[in-house]
Design a protein around this nucleic acid. Structure first.
Lengths: 263, 263
DNA sequence: CGAGTAATTGAGTAAGGTCAATTCTTGTGG
DNA sequence: CCACAAGAATTGACCTTACTCAATTACTCG
């Protein structure tokens, strides 16, 4: 459930004194160039903080939202659902990711968002985001591009599901998560806290939790990864990436042409 | 290969006298409201026509493009690829669909586009599209929204792949195609020309062509669909949709809230 | 008419699912 | 600090769906 939504508006400082929006802005800047003024406009967006417990849908399927959700801490899954009720996770959002920026242009959701672990969110009203986009074509473009990258990742997952077996899929996901978590913890690029259960992994990979377990088992036995509690450590990255057929460009986590093209 | 690209620029008339961009504009207007002036701006975008033969990649993986491709006739598939070379189709574009509007903001492609049947394309330069978006926030928003709908469809396909068996997936795809083709041929909502082979269907559904064949076979035997040549006819739509768990809202083919919200 | 592609069909195999039981963890209250 | 309950991970036995390999039968288009 919602735990005491903190209704403070305006810039919210982290313990470190930076805005909670800073990591998100950093993410945007990785992919798009923005002037100082534009950056300020984004950092000054009004924000409402909220805590969400594990396994809570904080955005429900078919609901109409008036705000977008930035993940500050925890993990969020974007769910799709079969009429029979089977759920499939179609995207994973980590701290610094805006889980549903696209809801700005499609406020009637086509998906559900669920906290896969205890999560802290920053909610930003659609109208503020819309206005920012209207005032600055560069911001509009950055938002659009962000959505395209999001879609690009979904497409990769789709390829995995369609054409890779369980072991390859698992390896691919671990490589992706390592790369994404490394953004925030560059010192330990080969380990991260996997905040999700094997059941949830199954919902991501299109497998059963039993098979996920066996798959992790073989990766472990092969000396590719290690688990200690939630902590995942990649032992043999080369081999893991080879199995996965992983190459990180689709994550668009480094500056490239596109960032300079924007107008 | 490319067959004599017709280098005419400016408004290209169809036999009927309408611009080739008209169907695309119509698609946009389904989802976003645009002023008459904005509509004209879009219709006046410069266009280069091109013919592509079957099984030709006209956009290659990792290439940098400077134009977006509108499908005028035929079918286009968006491909993802495993390092081993297995291909998976992640999206299907029918006449009236812009296959890679997203390339405007991400010109280095992360995908390949292939003609799945003989196809006519209208290529529109990125800079013209960019300028249109910069000049009008409503157009920028419409483009963004279009991309979000595209992603929404991919997400559905992903759910299918992860959580539906072969029969359900096949049924779901046929329902989707019927709905999308019905836009252009409203008189025959229950039939359409399936311009793709069973091998290609397999690449869409994450199956082998053998299994696709058997799956179609059972749908046929169950009296749900009929094939005569390329022509597919849905006999029992209710039952087919029930098997698929299909509900068309994710295609965003009818006017709804979103269209009125835009600024 | 014949080549080449696409669709079918059969037989045997394997990856992953199902069902069910057992063992860890972890958080909680006393 | 300990006992317990609830959720997570693990493991075994067996089953089903979809894959592989291979051969045969349509189609389609010069």
């Amino acid at each position: 459930m919602w735990r005491s939504p903190d209704r403070t508006r305006g810039i919210i400082a982290l313990p470190s004194g930076r805005s909670v929006l800073q990591p998100w802005l950093q993410r945007l800047l990785l992919r798009s160039a923005l002037t100082e003024q534009e950056q300020c406009a984004l950092l000054e967006l009004p924000v409402t903080m909220a805590q969400v417990d594990v396994n809570r849908d904080f955005v429900k399927l078919g609901q109409v939202t008036d705000h977008a959700c930035l993940v500050v801490e925890g993990v969020v899954g974007r769910f799709g659902q079969t009429r029979k009720g089977d759920r499939q996770i179609t995207a994973l959002y980590l701290p610094g990711d805006m889980a549903d920026l696209h809801s700005v242009v499609l406020p009637r959701t086509d998906w559900a968002l669920q906290a896969l672990a205890a999560t802290t969110l920053a909610r930003i009203p659609h109208d503020a985001l819309s206005k920012a986009a209207e005032r600055s074509p560069a911001i509009a473009r950055a938002f659009w591009r962000d959505g395209v990258v999001d879609a690009s990742i979904i497409a990769r997952w789709h390829v995995s599901l369609g054409r890779r077996d369980a072991k390859e899929r698992m390896a691919h996901l671990l490589c992706e998560l390592a790369a994404r978590y490394a953004l925030q913890a560059p010192d330990t690029p080969d380990e991260f806290d996997l905040l999700i259960t094997q059941v949830q992994l199954a919902d991501i990979l299109g497998l059963t939790s039993v098979h996920v377990n066996r798959t992790i088992g073989t990766l472990r036995k092969d000396g590719l990864i290690m688990f200690s509690g939630r902590r995942v450590r990649i032992i043999d990255r080369k081999a893991l990436e080879a199995i996965a057929g992983f190459e990180r460009s689709y994550l668009h986590l480094e500056h490239h042409d596109a960032a300079r093209h924007q107008g």
